[in-house]
Simulated scan of single mutants.
Amino acid sequence: TLVDTMDGAFALVEELRAKGLTLVHPFDDPVVIAAQGTVGLEFAQDAGELTDVLVSIGGGGLIAGVATALRARRPGVRIWGVETDGARAMSAALEAGGPVPVELSSIVSTLSAPSVSPITYEHVSALVTDVLTVTDAEAVRGTLDLADHAKVWAEPAAGCLLPAARRVLERVGEDARLGLVLCGGNATTADVTAWAERFGLR
């Protein structure tokens, strides 16, 4: 069964659970978070002397895992979360002191969780330096920049990291060494072209 929105997807999940099916949750699961933490271990082993790492946030599972593993190996590394303005589930949770439902309007569907979970909120509030938000247009511009300059195809869920990285450098200084977790390739060239035209980026 396919649905058109992320809210609809989570509602469908609840219907299927009520019928007795088992959910492997994409972020509200300690085993999933631990598995995603292997990305943090790879950074610790392979990425040299990083000072800061940026991770996109949807429901928060990826950043919870990365922050836990990376901070365990490199306690001084700062972790930054990045969301889009229309998918601010973690930012809203941090402002409210816990998970709250948010209204979703971002084109970046893979970051559009209707809320974070208690476990991801607790990880982020304890381990993450700050959560930054960027516009959808900035996220699409980042996707284009990754393709044009780094020759990497990524969706806006990763493209949002580039404008956020510039803000991190403004805050911590140009001598910082940044790592970006480039997640996801779930956007087609037609998707990105349409978004670029919509935002006047071409």
Rank of each mutant, 00 (worst) to 15 (best):
S125D: 07
A154L: 03
V116H: 02
R141E: 14
S105E: 08
K151V: 09
V124L: 15
C160S: 07
L132R: 01
P163Q: 07
T135G: 12
P156F: 02
H123N: 13
V108C: 11
G98Q: 00
T110A: 09
A137L: 06
A113R: 11
A93C: 09
Y121D: 01
T110C: 15
L104A: 01
V108T: 13
A147K: 03
T110Q: 13
V102G: 10
L127D: 04
G98H: 06
A165W: 04
V108L: 11
L162E: 04
S117L: 05
A93E: 15
L104S: 13
P163A: 04
L94A: 05
A165P: 10
T129V: 03
S115H: 15
S91E: 14
A126S: 12
D145E: 14
A92G: 15
I119M: 13
I119A: 03
A113W: 11
A164G: 08
E122Y: 11
G159M: 00
S105Q: 13
I119E: 14
Y121E: 02
V108R: 08
L146M: 03
S117W: 00
P114H: 11
A87M: 02
G97D: 04
A89V: 02
S117N: 04
P118C: 11
D148I: 06
G97P: 09
V100A: 03
L162V: 02
H123I: 01
T110F: 13
I107C: 12
T129E: 12
A164H: 04
S112I: 01
S109T: 09
S112V: 00
R88F: 14
P99A: 08
S105H: 06
H149R: 12
P99R: 13
T143Y: 13
L161V: 04
P99I: 00
A92N: 04
L144S: 12
G142F: 11
A154W: 10
L111T: 15
C160K: 07
T129C: 05
P114F: 08
I119V: 11
S125Y: 13
V134K: 07
V124D: 07
A92P: 12
W153D: 05
D130V: 09
P163S: 10
A150V: 01
A126K: 13
V131P: 14
E95M: 08
A158G: 07
D148C: 14
V128T: 15
A137N: 15
L132N: 01
L144P: 10
L146P: 00
V124C: 11
G159K: 09
H123E: 12
E138D: 00
D136N: 01
L104P: 08
L104I: 06
T129F: 13
R141T: 05
A164C: 08
S105W: 14
L161Q: 09
D145H: 07
D130Q: 15
V134L: 08
A89H: 06
L132G: 02
K151F: 14
V152K: 00
